[in-house]
Design a protein around this nucleic acid. Structure first.
Length: 561
RNA sequence: UGGGGUGUAGCCAAGUGGUAAGGCACCAGAUUUUGAUUCUGGCAUUCCCAGGUUCGAAUCCUGGCACCCCAGCCA
């Protein structure tokens, strides 16, 4: 499997815009996009959508895409996040080559741009407190009023701004504001803040600055400096576009990018807000950013999702301006489709119960050949050891079984896949009535699982040898929340909606011997059970597997446990 | 009448005046040594609603309705 991303097959309204502009020769320098994460958290699947869009357009239209860290707020950003983001971008299959940048790389130019605005009377130093700025901004329905500092002279503004930069003032004492229109119906145009004072070291620029530019000012200029042609962002920035354009209209810039918005991704039964994901991590409600229940790329990776499956998902959901609330089944379908093709099969018994084959020789061991993939002989075969005592799945035995239960029950015959047909002769229970041992007879003529006389045996079970199997820990994962949209009800704390069964740890699982040497990240289909992935917690001889996704199960769906 | 957006099936989504693609989900059947996979068929006489224009409207016009975003010195 190639590490490079396949282009998104589907088109969308943004690609159509790019295409028609290219047809009109509007971009002689080629199309340029950018993926601009803030390094204040880990990337999630919503970012994957943005990456597929931005890097995908660059790839398909022979353009370029920058990976630009939007690092203008030093108190939330850290090198740990920078490193994690770079790792995740590469993992998803995208390459920035020599186009790794930071908004902070442009702090000098940004400062000069601010000075230019001041010189032209388009910006002023405001010495109102944050609270006063807020109250003078007006409301959604009422205009704001001008700051008393709005008409400071250019000379005074220049002097003050310079002194802000030199560290003469404490945090919060002054800000630089654009001089636009306090009565604008668009609140973003009511003299928005351009620079604030923060005496804080920065993850990239260190101690060099104590004033930091705001997003709304930084973003259009960074785009222009990188000759970005299409600045693609999510819908909540739509109202900011007027300010984006104002900046580009009022500062001398080398190029003229265009902002286009698309809707952000929401997935059922999870959350995509970085603030809330951070809270889950910090309050230790999950094991970390890479907890397999998290919608982060690192979480999905640890869960067993492949980059290709996530790219496929992004292609399937499309890019529009509609609110997107996607069902989990879409994502699950993508990983099942990928892993069905690529994951070798293996036997693992999650909740074992002992089976004794009374008519099988006591010390005999046979090796049966098993296909690594039933539909792909190229994936080869392995052998699995068989002996008198085995484990099967507790769920595969029922004492009083209905007609349609195609598994083991007293007097009934099933196939042990690749091995023999066995018939249940006796059930042994403990004092509280739990089945602890199932006795069977096997048909010696059915080696390999073939019915010698062609008799129909509907049920086929997976199994492991009691003597040869390996103990394993298996972690079952399910949706993180019990509500499709945990944020829907503002009276309910989303923490209270965490699914208590989102992680179920099985410590007594028995897996076939070949699985003892599973390497972290190896994926398997445990037959009849699901897709699993070896966790980094695995140790030699004691593997740990995460369930990526269960197999589709038309029996279990109709007969919930 | 604060501003900006969005309404096509349960969830996504094509569609750009010529008679509703596709995916997921769901249902039915075939094949199957995984109740998996695969395959086959079904699933919107109608596009938020109401009028209008037109031979013809999801597409154009008018008027409603519903939902989302915006009042950080966050991004």
């Amino acid at each position: 499997m190639s590490r490079t991303a396949r282009p998104m097959s589907a088109t969308n309204f943004i690609r159509q815009i790019v295409e028609s502009e290219l047809a009109d020769k509007r971009h002689p320098g080629g199309v340029v996009t950018r993926f601009p994460p803030e390094p204040n958290g880990y990337l999630h699947i919503g970012h994957a959508k943005s990456m597929c869009l931005n890097f995908g357009i660059a790839q398909d239209f022979k353009g370029k895409c920058y990976l630009r860290f939007d690092d203008t707020n030093p108190d939330r950003e850290s090198p740990e996040y920078v490193a994690a983001i770079k790792h995740d971008v590469r993992w998803l299959g995208f390459e920035w080559e020599n186009r790794l940048t930071h908004a902070s790389d442009y702090f000098d130019q940004l400062y000069q741009a601010a000075v230019e605005l001041v010189r032209n009377g388009k910006a002023f130093v405001c010495s109102l407190s944050a609270a006063d700025i807020r109250s003078s901004r007006g409301t959604l329905t009422q205009p704001g009023h001008d700051s008393p500092f709005r008409d400071r002279s250019v000379a005074e503004n220049l002097d003050l701004f310079e002194r802000m930069r030199c560290g003469e003032f404490a945090d919060g004492t002054h800000v630089l504001r654009a001089r636009i229109d306090m009565a604008s119906p668009n609140i973003n145009l009511r003299d928005p803040t351009l620079y604030r004072i923060r005496h804080l070291p920065h993850q990239n620029t260190g101690e060099r600055w104590c004033i930091y530019p705001m997003y709304g000012f930084t973003h259009p200029l960074s785009d222009a400096l990188e000759s970005v042609t299409h600045s693609l962002c999510t819908l909540e920035f739509e109202d900011q576009r007027a300010f984006y354009d104002w900046v580009l209209d009022n500062v001398t810039v080398p190029s003229r990018p265009r902002q286009i918005e698309f809707s952000r991704l929401a997935l059922d039964y999870t959350i995509m807000s970085k603030r809330l994901l951070t809270a889950l991590v910090e309050e230790k409600r999950v094991a970390g950013w890479d907890d397999p229940r998290m919608p982060t790329l690192s979480g999905l990776r640890r869960r067993g999702y492949t980059p290709a499956s996530i790219r496929d998902f992004c292609a399937r959901i499309g890019v529009t301006r509609n609110e997107q609330q996607i069902e989990m089944s879409v994502l699950e379908n993508c990983i099942r489709e990928d892993l069905d093709r690529t994951a070798p099969r293996a036997f693992a018994v999650l909740r074992p119960v002992r089976v004794v084959i009374d008519n099988y020789p006591n010390n005999q061991v046979e090796e049966f050949e098993a296909a690594n993939h039933p539909n792909d002989p190229g994936m080869g075969v392995r052998t699995v050891p068989f002996c008198r005592e085995l484990f099967i799945e507790q769920q595969d035995f029922m004492e009083d079984a209905p007609r349609k239960f195609f598994r083991l029950a007293p007097g009934r015959e099933v196939r042990l896949r690749y091995a023999y047909l066995i018939k249940c002769t006796e059930v042994i229970k403990d004092h509280s009535g739990n089945v602890i041992e199932i006795h069977c007879d096997y048909d010696p003529a059915s080696a390999g699982g073939k019915a010698p006389d062609g008799r129909k045996v509907k049920g086929t079970l997976h199994w492991v040898s009691a003597e040869h199997s390996v103990n394993a820990e298996i972690r079952l994962y399910d949706q993180l929340f019990v509500e499709p949209n945990p944020r829907a009800d503002s009276d309910t704390d989303f923490m209270d909606l965490i699914n208590p069964e989102s992680q179920v740890i099985l410590t007594g699982a028995k897996v076939e011997p070949s699985l003892a040497r599973a390497q972290c990240g190896d994926t398997f289909q445990f037959e009849r059970t699901g897709y699993f992935c070896a966790d980094p917690d695995s140790a030699p001889g004691s593997p740990v597997f995460n369930r990526t996704v269960p197999l589709r199960d038309s029996w279990g769906r109709k007969n919930p446990a």
